[in-house]
Design a protein around this nucleic acid. Sequence first.
DNA 1: GCAAACCGAATTTTT
DNA 2: TTCGGTTTGC
Length: 792
Amino acid sequence: MPDALIPATGDPLLDGLNPPQREAVEYRGSALLIVAGAGSGKTRVLTHRVASLLRNREAWPSQILAITFTNKAAAEMRERVEDIVGEQAKGMWISTFHSACVRILRREAEQFGFTKSFTIYDSGDVRALLKRLVKEHEGDAYGLTPAAVQSRISKLKNELHDADSFRSQANISDPAERIFVEIFQDYSRRLRSANALDFDDLLAQTVFLFRAFPNVADTYRRRFRHVLVDEYQDTNHAQYQLIRELTKPVQGEQMDVGGGMVALLPEASDARASLTVVGDSDQSIYAFRGADIRNITEFERDFPGAKAILLEQNYRSSQNILDAANSVIRNNFDRKDKKLWTDQGPGESVVGFTGYSQHDEAQFIADEIDRLRGQGTNYSDIAVFYRTNSQSRALEEILIRAAVPYKIMGGTKFYDRAEIKDAIAYLVAVVNPADELAVRRILNKPKRGIGAVTETNIARFAADNDMTFREALGHADAMGLGPKIRKAIEQLDAVLQDATEILLPAEGDAPPTSVTEGLRLLLNASGYEDALRRSQDPQDEARVENLDELVAVTREFARNNPDGTIIDFLTEVALVADSDDLEDESGVVSLMTLHTAKGLEFDTVFLTGVEEDLIPHRISAGEPGGPQEERRLFYVGITRARRRLYLSLAMTRAQFGEVSSAMPSRFLQEIPAGLIEWRQSPSEMNGRGAGARSLGGGGSAARARENSWGQRPLTPKNKSSLAEFTNRVTGKVRDNGDLELTAGDRIQHDDFGEGTVDAITGQGAKRIAHVRFESAGTKKLLIKVAPITKIS
DNA sequence: GCAAACCGAATTTTT
DNA sequence: TTCGGTTTGC
């Protein structure tokens, strides 16, 4: 229905919304499911719904709990609600599952035998601990790897098993299983004694807490009258149960009436929070980490009387893109039919391209980007997606050479860097001295000559004398160590004590100093920063800069949270993945995996590597529901595009040092031939179509000749030309920094042959040569790295 | 205790 | 190929 036909209501929260959107904002009832197709305006609906609850005085801000999966989504939602209702938004809990749980758990920590200052272990910490435990239990003899154990424990916790409950149902007669159970139990003990929780615990412990202490649960049930959950299709079992617990009726005072019978005193028995969930089962792509699509598909059964509203009108993409998306996702059986549509017209065709190799494919993309750029498209409106991270390399190599600025999204995270983790470990060692892992981590950082042997000695001393590892550091003299090592330990102990005094002063002493000062003290007095500065390794220079950045983060934190404690800071660090948000990278092409792309949108999208064994990924074939999830992933990729969608693939792909030939993805066949305009189709590349499915794209042969490779004739089946293009590009860093080029020069390029320089732009390391090649057309080349030599 | 040489495995990822 | 983990040798 065209928007024009929707009558204005005079209500700013409803105007501009289509009828189902309005209903989703206005419906009041105990449970509401909003099935929001890609690009259907779900965030808008969600924020307007929250705003309308507030505006109509149906709820106080403090009675609203809105849950998202990522911090970014939470921040965006808060911002948008604030835009509508202003200051009021401050009192709402808009947060991720994990932050909401941490908030609850810190408050209630004593109830379950932890202290407020518990540490949160990320997967790296968990891995480090499990590595030790697997070794101690000799798990490798039974084929147990730390990675496998980690993922299994995580899955079990997501299913709300703990080590003991799992033990009772495990098959102990299988030795590998027995060892696994032992490791799991030991792991749980270590976490407990370290006063630490892993990510999965945050959810599971909250559920356990609610179940074990109904009065605690009631506190939160009374408080949150409206619970809203975004991306509901991505919830795992623990998250689902958490929602269930929160939306149960307030139980009221329990009275033991004898004989173990419990009576409930009547207290507002229908007082249960209203639940709104938003999601799209077609965008469920996280089953591999425990997301259970049934949570959303069976919502109406789980919550009887639930209302379901379907949002199918898409405000993002052109109809051609939506048709492509619909025609792909339609092939998933067992799904509620849903068809995205738009009133914005068909738009441009989807463009297909088949390269000889991944580099050929990348070159096409680079050329297209350059062409679009010439037409006024911003780099920041362009994104390149791929299934696996390893695919980014070839793209990067070509983009660098073509002088296309890009950024890899969701790559290595700031807080994952070793030096940052070290610095954080210093802080943790102060705040939560029970955290053995943190203390061990900093034991020999910077190098103090304390190796594995000494570490074991300290651990043994601690165990023998019934003290923590941290406490043992204060008794270096009693361990029979050499004088050098003894002094090193004493020095570390002193540094930690000094930091403790200023960060966590005893009652009545001076107030605690800022996190910034504490961190500075730790980094300086420990000698950590000095060691990096003195180092010859050029990488260490960057590490120092990262530490400076971390110090800056602490300052920023203090500014944003005047009352923020060091515990708050560490919580934020543990739960917020990157310090620099991915957003607003203006003027840069975004590269990312399909998973990272979820929730984002771009004018122009290049979906690369559309090949069998990549998408669907080969490993997914053996997993139940695997191929279907891959199809959803492909669907997610397609629906990110607003105006232009490119689907590209390569005939050969070099992986693991081997070149193998690739076949077009089955998903390509699912898109009607008429929707794709092939610049170079797989069948053309394959002569008689041998080896590949014949794919629609018949009438495109003429267009193929005007592709970016200019007049160079395609020579299908020509093995030598394939070989020529495979692995031509090496990762080796060239440095042509001193190469002097001026307009008119003749150059030889490894891939493109001979050409004439038209112009030179840019400065220094960013000098760009604009070259007219005889056979490959005009290219922009970054002189510093392009594989070129001057001839004549 | 530490650096160099060697071997083997290699989706997707947020919190 | 590349990364990371283990083994080996100083």
